Simulated scan of single mutants.
Amino acid sequence: MSAIFVDADACPVKAEVVKVAERHGLPVTFVANGGLRPSRDPMIRNIVVTGKFDAADDWIVDNAVAGDIAVTADVPLAARLVEKGIHTLGPTGRPFTPETIGMAVAMRNLKQDLREAGEIKGYNPGFTPRDRSAFLQALDQTVRRALREKQEKD
């Protein structure tokens, strides 16, 4: 069975992930450095990691397997997940795929360099209802694709 892993630090779509996961009967694992609300739902697991800077990222990479689904806004983490064959989405519904991850990493690095040089401000655009809707649709499509691929393998 596929599972959904969420890089939960500052993730704006936790409720949407749970909604889609419930619809498809998939387990969800939220991974964060802290601040997760407990859930009584047996299909939801919260993992709180401590230690080094990328501990949550490392935990997700170590525990997700090909065919699973991951949600993250962290482009370097997305690159690691895509490399493992994990269906990966950003919180706005943007898919990270083998075809798109190289450009996503390059743009992230360029923006980081421009911020460090003072050429641009480090502000991200606000999260909108349109982003939330796009994410819901993209996650549902991704789950359906992951389940279909898994069924074809079995």
Score class of each variant (00 low, 15 high):
D7R: 00
R132M: 01
L89Y: 04
I120R: 04
N46M: 08
M103K: 15
K153T: 10
D54M: 12
S133L: 13
M103I: 14
F127Y: 11
P98H: 13
A3K: 15
K84W: 05
P125G: 02
S2Y: 09
V75A: 01
Q151N: 12
V61A: 08
D9P: 02
P12W: 02
E116S: 14
L77P: 00
G122W: 05
G67E: 11
D113T: 14
I44W: 03
A106W: 13
F5L: 06
D131C: 09
D68T: 08
I69E: 04
E22V: 14
I47A: 03
V6D: 04
A106I: 12
V48E: 09
P98M: 12
D140Q: 05
H87E: 08
A117C: 11
E83S: 13
R132Y: 05
I44H: 00
P76E: 05
T72G: 01
V18I: 12
M43A: 14
T100E: 06
D58K: 11
A104S: 14
A106P: 12
R108Y: 02
V71H: 02
N33R: 06
P38R: 13
V48R: 07
L139V: 01
V18K: 00
V143N: 06
V49R: 08
R45V: 11
I69S: 07
P125L: 06
D41Q: 09
V48F: 06
V20T: 05
I101H: 03
V65K: 15
K84A: 10
R132G: 00
V105H: 08
A32G: 01
T100C: 07
A134L: 09
N46Q: 13
A134N: 05
R23V: 09
A21S: 04
R115E: 10
I60G: 02
I101S: 05
R145L: 15
I120M: 09
E116M: 14
I60T: 01
L77D: 00
R115P: 04
S133G: 10
F96L: 09
A64W: 09
V18C: 02
L147E: 13
D9E: 04
H87S: 11
V49A: 03
G34I: 01
D9W: 02
R115M: 14
A55Q: 03
R23L: 12
A146R: 03
